[in-house]
Amino acid sequence: MIRFILLQNRQGKTRLAKYYVPLEDSEKHKVEYEVHRLVVNRDPKFTNFVEFRTHKIIYRRYAGLFFSLCVDITDNELAYLECIHLFVEILDHFFSNVCELDLVFNFHKVYLILDEFILAGELQETSKRAIIERMGELEKLE
């Protein structure tokens, strides 16, 4: 199960944070800080997995942005790595060539995409097209 998802830039500013387990606000800030510290200095040659307390962080870097997932220790790391990539592809399609600013100004949309992709810490939909279509329908309602 995914415990939380973080999107951070290189300076450690959190661009998106989604928690599937209840945490206190102060704890969340601490976690965000620690995760950033963990991933930002790793050599790109190293594995994309880091142990974090009793869980694992699976992270992937896209330009200046780090996508980090915190998952259970027994979960399939490679699958989540692929999952991050799929999420990025969806964002890329949706915003056509996504960049950090898109995510800042349209953060509520990013959350909506995420809600269509992952729910309750589990994968909800694996088809890029289905999610993009669904987002299109939702946009039309506004």
């Binding site: 399939n76 699958a79 692929e82 999952c83 289905a130």
Partner: peptide, 19 residues
């Protein structure tokens, strides 16, 4: 094409089924 990832159809489903 809808579910294809790197030449494999829906690896995520594969993995969940195996699990």
């Amino acid at each position: 094409p809808e579910y294809d990832v790197g030449g494999i159809t829906d690896p995520f489903l594969h993995i969940r089924l195996l699990k």
